[in-house]
């Protein structure tokens, strides 16, 4: 077995249960710490398998370019302060490069953009949420012709995945930092107060994918075929 596979198995089947058990034994508010640790354990396998593959220079630079585009996209739309096309670009990266690379683009863009906007207790959650966004896109659309790839259906996919997957993951971080009891009403309260911002984020993703999914996918696919990048 490869070293990265062993590490993945250890991380998923030993570390996660051990941490969860520990959070039941230890007194006090350890749940925030243990949940963050669990996220780190989920992130590690993705990073390890990327390291283990020893990516070629071309793939490495291609991924770096997509991450940088995702981070820079927010500054390009500086004239519209609330407009964040970052999810759209991560989804496009996932569709073009596959689930694993999509996750990597998401997680690295979240991490890199936090060096500009500030790291915080939300960083691991953002990495997981953004990564999942790229992962889902890759799982559903990469090298598959079953699902329609026109801008409208991609836009809808983006809208739904941001509203129901990415934003709830980010709100979970708020739930864990601010609540003292975890009753259904309290948790629902936090999620509903965030619904407006989440709708805006999902709307931005919809607009981004409607406008640029076609030209961007064409450009990335062209580079991939021209230079045989994913072989």
């Amino acid at each position: 077995m490869k070293k990265s596979t062993i590490a993945t198995l250890i991380s998923l089947f030993v570390l996660i249960p051990a941490t969860l058990l520990l959070s039941r034994i230890l007194p006090g508010r350890v749940h925030y710490l243990t949940s963050t640790l669990v996220i780190v354990y989920i992130l590690i396998p993705f990073f390890l398998s990327f390291e283990g593959k020893k990516p070629s220079a071309r793939v490495l630079v291609l991924i770096a370019v997509l991450c940088a585009l995702a981070v820079a996209s927010r500054a390009i739309f500086a004239m519209l302060p609330n407009f964040k096309p970052i999810y759209g670009i991560i989804i496009i990266a996932g569709i073009a490069l596959g689930a694993q690379a999509g996750f990597l683009v998401g997680a690295v863009s979240a991490f890199a953009s936090n060096f500009l906007f500030g790291q915080g207790p939300w960083t691991p959650w953002q990495m997981l949420a953004y990564g999942t966004c790229g992962l889902l896109a890759g799982l559903l659309y990469f090298r598959k012709d079953k699902l329609p790839r026109d801008p409208v259906s991609l836009g809808l996919f983006g809208f739904i995945s941001v509203l129901f997957v990415v934003c709830p993951l980010l709100d979970t971080s708020t739930v864990l930092t601010t609540l003292t009891v975890f009753t259904p009403t309290a948790i629902l309260g936090i999620y509903t107060t965030a619904i407006l911002t989440n709708l805006i984020q999902a709307g931005c993703t919809l607009v981004t994918l409607l406008a640029i999914s076609k030209p961007m996918l064409r450009k990335i696919d062209r580079i991939i075929t021209k230079y045989g990048l994913l072989e």
Partner: peptide, 22 residues
């Protein structure tokens, strides 16, 4: 306008990435 800039940027950055990689 923003989207037009973003797509133009993508094309340029992707071609540049191959040069960097090589």
């Amino acid at each position: 306008q923003g989207m037009a800039v973003l797509t133009a940027l993508t094309g340029w950055a992707l071609e540049g990435s191959i040069v960097t990689a090589d």
